[in-house]
């Protein structure tokens, strides 16, 4: 393309407002104009008005996205930190335009066993619930608390713990009772509109739902029997849970023997 003097729009810098509002500027012009914008209220107003006018240009262009896109997106945001919201001081910031791709690559690198991360964690997931955590009532009693205690007290109870970036997830299995319990510590609440779902993961990578983590509790008796499972996994699912995992697990705790 034509050579121009980079970053030097000259005295008619104001005239770039329209081209800028249409994204019809090259990166150098964009940077220079944004610098100008910071100190020019008139241009800020004009850009805002002109940008508003471009809304009408796409009025008749709607194309319905496939449902899979929606599902994927809602999974992604569950593990995507927001700018300007309180964050626990951990994990990298995700600001770059290629963040999604990078994260996919990173996840792919860390995945094994049909997508289950044994002892792995998406660090951001833990931080994301910080806003929602105070929105949930803490007064619902946990109906399974007694059964949980039975498993914990069983003479053959076996514990396996995984650390999840500050939180810990412990699975306690009691073969004599054919039941298992999950205990969490320092784990933030599931994001609003979603639940932590527990899964018995089998050697071939299949997952069988073991129920939901209670929103107001840090322990739960798993539904079903642990026999045959090689790990207990946790995923974030739409409220109420899913038939099968629809997102990558935030942690999988291997089971003994």
């Amino acid at each position: 393309m034509s050579q121009q003097t980079p970053g030097a729009p000259g005295e008619d810098v104001h005239s770039l407002a329209a081209a800028y509002a249409l994204d019809a500027v090259d990166p150098d012009e964009r940077a220079a104009f944004e610098e100008h914008l910071a100190g020019c209220a008139a241009c800020r107003t004009e850009v805002a008005e002109l940008a508003e006018a471009t809304v009408a240009l796409s009025e008749h262009l709607s194309v319905e996205p496939p449902p899979a896109l929606r599902a994927q997106l809602l999974r992604e945001i569950a593990t995507t930190p927001q700018e300007g919201t309180p964050r626990q001081d951990r994990g990298p910031r995700h600001d770059g335009p290629d963040e999604l791709g990078e994260r996919r690559t990173r996840r792919a690198r860390r995945s094994r066993g049909g997508g289950w991360l044994l002892a792995g964690v998406a660090a951001a997931t833990i931080a994301v619930g910080t806003v929602a955590v105070t929105q949930w009532p803490q007064d619902t009693p946990d109906p399974s608390v007694v059964a949980v205690q039975e498993v914990l007290d069983a003479p053959d109870a076996v514990r396996t713990t995984e650390s999840v970036d500050g939180a810990t997830v412990t699975v306690v299995t009691a073969s004599s009772l054919e039941r298992a319990v999950v205990l969490t510590e320092d784990m933030t609440a599931a994001p609003s509109g979603q639940d932590y779902q527990l899964w018995f993961v089998h050697e071939d990578g299949t997952a069988v739902s073991a129920g939901l983590m209670p929103r107001d509790g840090d322990q739960v008796l798993l539904e079903g029997e642990p026999a045959g499972a090689v790990a207990v996994g946790i995923t974030i699912e739409p409220a109420g849970g899913s038939e099968q995992p629809t997102s990558d697990p935030i942690v999988a705790v291997p089971l003994e023997g």
Binding site: L61, S62, V63, P65, R70, T85, S192, G193
Partner: peptide, 25 residues
Amino acid sequence: AQGDQQSFAVLYDATGARVLGLVLR
């Protein structure tokens, strides 16, 4: 912006087709 994923889902449902249409164009 406050982390409300339900609102975000509704926002997406209301504007997703519009965004895809523009981007596709």
